[in-house]
Amino acid sequence: MWYNSNNYPTFKHFVPYVTYTMSEDPSLIACHACDLLLKKPVTSPGKKLICPRCKSTLYHKKIDSVNKVMAISFSGLLLYYPAIFAPLLTLSSAGMTQKGSVFDAFLSFYHQEYYFVAVILFLTSIFFPLFKLSLLLSITIQIKLQIYSRSLPFLFRTANSLDEWSMPDVYLIAILVSIIKISGIATIHYNLGFVSFVFLTIMTRATASAIDSELFWQKVFQLKKSVKGVPANG
């Protein structure tokens, strides 16, 4: 190590002067939006908890969340390859035809040397949907099979933060807008890619609405405790 125990770093924030323990009163929760401290009411599946002060949703308990997320993310991954790489549409106009997939759309920006836009396009429409579905599948498998790896909490935090950055739903609306835009100048044939993309979008939205973060975190924490024992000070 770069320091020894006699010579503790002098930076104030490196010194663990606050000892964290789990809250002694597990019946308390705090609102994420206004920090109001509340007694946790008994929740039943499918019901929402609303903060009395700021009216934000505190907790939405879902039914059979882990199984659903595992099934939906698996089927999403099956659809991923045709949705991204198979041609979406075939245009024919004046004897010429033109095909394009989601990946080609990214390449078109890349070839036009708009590298910044190309990178964002690649991340939001191609990489993050795949990354998020595979993260969710691996997390649900680990929860199901009771395997704990050190990275499990990190993986689930990453999956949660990717929620708004994977945008197949926005992309689907963009495809529909392009279809209407093109329909005036060319004849359109729908290909395998289009159907797969519609279902990929449905699958990603379904994972987002089926996932019960609080339940997942409880299961992850149970796994962590069973491996490491109850943490003394976090």
Partner: peptide, 26 residues
């Protein structure tokens, strides 16, 4: 927070148009 991502719509439309409406010199 919720509507933020929907602004990317126009960029996606341009990317798709650049791919699909590309009949060479025509």
């Amino acid at each position: 927070e919720f509507i933020g991502r929907w602004s990317m719509l126009d960029i996606f439309v341009i990317a798709l148009m650049a791919t699909l409406v590309n009949f060479g010199s025509l």
